[in-house]
Amino acid sequence: MNISGQEFIFGCSAIGAGLAVIAGIGPGVGQGIAAGHAAAAVGRNPGAKSDVTSTMLLGQAVAETTGLYGLLIAMLLLFVKPFT
């Protein structure tokens, strides 16, 4: 089987994109912890539900960023093809 250099680079880019998306593990764990603590806080003090929810969403949205960097790298590798 003959693989040209460009095809090889594209295949390696696809593998790299798959590896880059592993970055999604971290934000997943972090958002889960944040949501768990928010649920505990609401259980302790149900009156503060709206405040806790908005704070949780803000923190989760900030924590999501690192995962999105990985997604960005994956998309650059797959669609912009910087190395071909």
């Binding site: 949205a61 900030v62 960023t65 999105l68 960097y69 997604l71 960005l72 998309m75």
Partner: peptide
């Protein structure tokens, strides 16, 4: 950089 990449990547991922 971080503040603009956050907004950009979120909306881009939704679009994709």
């Amino acid at each position: 950089v971080s503040i603009s990449l956050r907004l950009f990547a979120n909306i881009l991922s939704g679009t994709v």
